[in-house]
Nucleic acid binder design. Structure first.
Length: 331
DNA sequence: TTCCGACAGTGGGGTCGCAAT
DNA sequence: ATTGCGACCCCACTATCGGAA
């Protein structure tokens, strides 16, 4: 493995190809509305693992955004890069598992990883940070995109160029949501790659909002005040109250304290809701009468019908809990 | 002076791996 | 063999602080 590939095509002598040990990745700012104007490139927001692909000394490696080496978890993808990309090249992109509808699915990716079935994964490349040893991060996005497309022209089909569209952000966002995508990322065409969270990368996510019955809460941990998280549920058409997960963010300090008082007052011994088998509570739970309704924002339902990325929006005093009926969580 | 970006710290679902039971 | 726990991945959000505007 120490011996470099004799076939090391492109001529860059490896002694000149020195990549920085650590390369910080660019992060996006969350926005409610996609930006307008021709200065913005819009692309799909992928739901997979963010991964830098580094090619040096004839070998490739995959590195997470916190600098963990994950080459061994995706051996096929890593091997593919070594096959076509020149030494001293770094791609920024996302490893994804595509559903039969062609959408990236994080749940499916985790399934694939746990089954060690990583063969039909793809890598969406959306940026080129180094090419043959040259640092491109100070070049404008537009130019990096152009070079990326050139480099990928000879790539195998599992390494995919992330296509972008120019202008008309809100319309592109609306279409992405109607196709059940996770959202879009908008990048300023003249921006450099700063390696921090920058206002030149904006993400606009397709979110769900739903009302849920509060069925319990957990204790606060460490310096947290009031309570830890709310347990929420909904009524199935059969009339059963079904657990839907925990909501632990979105509260101000005042809200944590005042809601805790309300919840303490309606505490009860036994749960009112049905917990799916295998539901594992990491901390002790206080059950409450199912009398309060919370409005919750979340990205999607997991395979087990549990909320993913939930956050608290507010209490709904105007809705009786018995009206919180959800027919089929997996829309 | 005000504002904003970076960071720390809380919380979620899911998976893996290790140590204790 | 099972369970608990921390560390990763994906994340949302609040509170704080120091420097830029």
């Amino acid at each position: 493995m120490a011996k470099s590939r004799p076939s090391a095509r492109r001529n860059a002598p490896s002694s000149q190809v020195r990549l920085p040990r650590k390369i910080p990745v660019e992060l996006a700012v969350l926005e409610k509305r996609a930006p307008e104007g021709d200065q913005w490139f819009h692309e799909a927001k992928f739901d997979g693992y963010r991964m830098l692909a580094r090619i040096e000394e004839g070998k490739s490696s995959l590195v997470t955004r916190t600098d963990q080496v994950w080459t061994d978890r995706f051996p096929e993808i890593a091997e593919t890069f070594a096959g076509f990309a020149p030494d001293g090249t770094v791609f920024d992109g996302e490893i994804c598992k595509l559903t039969d509808k062609g959408l990236s699915s994080f749940a499916a990716l985790q399934q694939a990883l746990s089954n060690e079935d990583t063969k039909d994964l793809v890598y969406y490349a959306f940026d080129l940070l180094f090419h043959e040893g040259a640092d491109l991060r100070q070049r404008p996005l537009e130019e990096r995109k152009r070079m990326l497309a050139e480099v990928l022209a000879s790539a195998p089909p599992t390494i995919i160029l992330s296509q972008h569209q120019i202008g008309n952000g809100p319309a592109i966002y609306a279409r992405a949501c109607s196709l059940h995508m996770e959202g879009i990322v908008s990048k300023h065409r003249a921006s450099t790659y700063s390696g921090t969270r920058s206002p030149y990368w904006l993400k606009t996510k397709c979110l769900n909002t739903e009302e849920f019955v509060i069925i319990g809460y957990t204790d606060p941990q460490r310096s947290r005040i009031g309570f830890g998280a709310l347990l929420v549920g909904y009524y199935a058409p059969s009339g059963e109250l079904v657990y839907a997960g925990k909501v632990g963010t979105g509260f101000t300090a005042d809200l944590l304290l005042s809601m805790h008082e309300s919840l303490k007052a309606i505490e009860r011994q036994a749960p009112t809701a049905i917990l799916p088998k295998g539901t594992y509570m990491r901390s002790p739970v206080h059950w409450v009468e199912p009398w309060l309704v919370a409005q919750v924002e979340f990205t999607e339902w997991t395979r087990d019908n549990i909320l993913r990325h939930p956050s608290f929006l507010g209490l709904r005093e105007d809705k009786p809990p018995t009206e919180i009926i959800i027919e089929r969580p997996k829309a």
